[in-house]
Simulated scan of single mutants.
Amino acid sequence: MPSTQPVNLVKDELSSVAVARAHARKAEVAAMLRLAGGLAIIGNKVVVDAELDHLPSAQRLVSAVHTLYGSIPALHTMRNSTRSSDHYLLRVTHAENLARQTGLIDHRGRPISGMPPWIIRGTRDEVEAAWRGAILATGRLSLTGHRQGLTVSSPGPEAALALVGLARRLGVTAQRREDRGRDCIVVRGDDAVTTLLAQIGAPQTSTQWSNRRHHHRLASQTGTGRSPTFESANTRRAAAAAAESTARVQRAMHILGDTAPEHLKEVAALRLANPGLTLTELGGRAQPPMTKDTVAGRIRRLLNLADRTAARAGIPDTGASTFGILPG
């Protein structure tokens, strides 16, 4: 699969996300201009440029800059025989106010290298919007090689470290690294990538990423001598574990009923409605999405609570559901 295909999938989805709050839209714009943009002085006037590799993303940025800030950007298509696809240059002249409001310069007109403080301490939807803008600006997904996972290019370490911190606020582990002398933010684990994508407005790409990674692992293991029988055994064990978990959760809800805490009821409902899904996939379907560890922890707490309740009442606990000894 070409490495650009998942990039187009995620950018297509993210560029169509509807955002109600103006502050969240501004966070997305600020991140896009910070990561894909630059400042110049032309004819004693501040000019803001942003170069993107995805037309719907560029059009989204043009619309947002005009709607939110009243500026009228020009959008140019840049064709280059050395590139596999066109790039798009957004340019705003007379852009001093835009640069100041989006955190590219301070009140004295001096360039700022990091992300705006109001995003760093912003609300959750502003944090999600900033990451959405970062991916639209310079993000790329890759299934193979040393860039496997999600990578976002940054103009410097300050913006990269800021995005690492913002990812942490979303429950996702990201790291700052250097790639060919340029700062990058990388999200490597499958659970982290699927969780982040689901949270920022790309649930379809999140699900497809999870499925593609699963199929890719199977293909690569088979191609390197791993036995298909071994994989089949793993699949059977995973299915058996999911079935056991579902049976225990069902028994737990029978024991606890309405006394179960709301957040544990929610994860129980997810497990019972989707008995064949992995914990990662369950987390992607939660609202808001949860990590695999969060889902596992809540199921574990639900079962422990039910088992303690059953012991006090002198009735079979959740483990009895897996041995067929529950009373009819």
Results as ranks from 00 to 15, higher is better:
135 I>C: 11
133 G>V: 01
106 D>C: 03
135 I>T: 04
103 G>Q: 11
118 W>I: 00
126 E>P: 07
111 P>F: 06
134 A>D: 02
122 G>T: 06
98 L>E: 09
93 T>G: 10
116 P>N: 06
104 L>H: 02
117 P>G: 02
93 T>Q: 07
104 L>I: 10
139 G>T: 08
108 R>W: 12
109 G>F: 06
114 G>N: 14
115 M>I: 14
110 R>Q: 13
134 A>Y: 04
138 T>I: 04
105 I>V: 15
105 I>A: 03
134 A>K: 09
137 A>T: 07
122 G>H: 02
107 H>A: 13
113 S>Y: 14
140 R>M: 10
114 G>V: 00
114 G>I: 03
102 T>M: 07
138 T>N: 11
118 W>R: 07
120 I>Q: 12
105 I>F: 11
129 A>L: 10
95 A>H: 07
112 I>A: 01
106 D>A: 07
93 T>P: 01
137 A>R: 04
129 A>Y: 00
120 I>N: 05
134 A>S: 14
100 R>T: 08
100 R>D: 00
118 W>A: 05
115 M>S: 02
136 L>F: 08
115 M>Y: 02
132 R>W: 09
102 T>S: 08
94 H>N: 15
106 D>S: 10
125 D>A: 13
103 G>N: 06
133 G>M: 02
98 L>C: 09
124 R>I: 14
139 G>A: 09
127 V>W: 09
105 I>D: 03
96 E>T: 10
103 G>S: 11
